[in-house]
């Protein structure tokens, strides 16, 4: 980072340029709407100052048509920008199906990232250029917010909740990554580097820092180690729902509700199993909230997802 003054933040995506265009155009509109106020106030203050001769006949103290028009015209103009900006925002909330999914765990005061191939990093996030990337994020403690100014996006990261952020970074380079939600003592030092690499460099980086074990495989090992397979395994003496084919399916719950088994449902069923009990099963699973951290949960979730199409759960 250069110590010189920067008047415009760097851009790492095409989307960032669209945000800049939006704010520049909207800035022009509001300047247009407020200019008459500033110009006329100064003009009137000089022209009609007390003691100065000026034409003061036909003074008005009401004019409904004028008032209605200066209420409505700016409003309608601003609505045009509302449509533009809301469309951009909603697009930015729907990641494409083929996005590369990374998991993010925030904790006081660091960022932990896991790549599906197994690479893990702290306070540095490597992503391939030109490819949609989806971050599935959660926090180990308080609320944080992942902010990459060069992408012009941020998203709060909440405890026990998966939030997501997606982007296509198309300009290789090293950019800043910051926590934007006040999170305690070292909030301003919860920063990192956002590194966009050409796909071949990213593949090389993955190969260098990755392990032979992917996220799901690691989850599979945890599944055994934590004793999950004792109940959820194929030949278990305890009656517990099978996890094969679970992800994405519709689960009937005790009490008649149904829920789609998404990442959040899997997370909650591990951490707070009594929240949503599958219909026909006894609420006997112990909560794992105090035993494992969010990183382990994300590995277990990755493993359960990988079993979505498998026949029977066999780690």
């Amino acid at each position: 980072m250069s110590p010189s003054i920067e008047l415009w933040p760097p851009m790492a995506s095409e989307y960032a340029g669209r945000v800049d265009l939006l704010i520049a155009s909207f800035g022009a509109l509001v300047a247009l709407l407020s200019a008459p106020v500033f110009i006329l106030m100064a003009f009137f203050a000089v022209r009609y100052r007390r003691g100065r001769r000026a034409d003061r006949s036909h003074r008005e103290d009401r004019n409904v048509w004028v008032e209605v028009s200066w209420s409505l015209i700016p409003f309608v103009l601003v609505l045009g920008f509302f449509v533009w900006s809301t469309k951009m925002f909603l697009d930015q909330r729907s990641p494409p199906e083929n996005a590369l999914t990374l998991t993010v765990v925030a904790k006081q005061w660091m960022w932990k990232f896991q790549h599906p191939e197994g690479a893990r990093e702290i306070d540095e996030l490597h992503v391939p250029a030109g490819r949609p990337v989806r971050l599935t994020m959660t926090s180990q403690d308080v609320i944080h917010s992942l902010y990459v100014p060069a992408l012009r996006i941020k998203q709060d990261v909440l405890p026990d909740t998966y939030s997501q952020l997606w982007f296509i970074a198309d300009r290789p380079g090293v950019y800043a990554l910051r926590c934007a939600e006040y999170c305690g003592t070292d909030h301003s030092e919860m920063i990192g580097r956002f590194i966009v690499q050409r796909p071949e460099d990213y593949a090389r980086w993955l190969a260098r820092s990755g392990t032979d074990e992917g996220l799901a495989e690691r989850g599979g090992k945890l599944f055994v180690k934590l004793g999950c397979s004792g109940c959820h395994g194929p030949a278990s003496p305890v009656r517990a729902p099978s996890l094969a084919g679970l992800y994405g399916s519709v689960v009937p719950l005790e009490g008649g509700r149904v829920v789609r088994a998404d990442e959040q449902y899997l997370h909650d069923s591990i951490m707070l199993p009594n929240k949503d009990v599958a219909a026909g099963y006894k609420p006997i699973m112990p909560p794992f909230g105090n035993l494992i951290g969010e990183e382990e949960v994300s590995q277990l979730v990755a493993w359960i997802k990988s079993q979505a199409d498998a026949g029977r759960a066999q780690p």
Partner: peptide, 30 residues
């Protein structure tokens, strides 16, 4: 909420424009 936040700006804008119009043909003491 974004839409309603634009709506709430309207009455504030009315005030500002009306203050400006109040100065028109006044006897302004600076």
């Amino acid at each position: 909420f974004s839409f309603l936040s634009i709506v709430v700006a309207v009455p504030s804008a009315i005030k500002v424009y009306n203050w400006t119009a109040t100065l028109h043909k006044g006897e302004i003491l600076l």
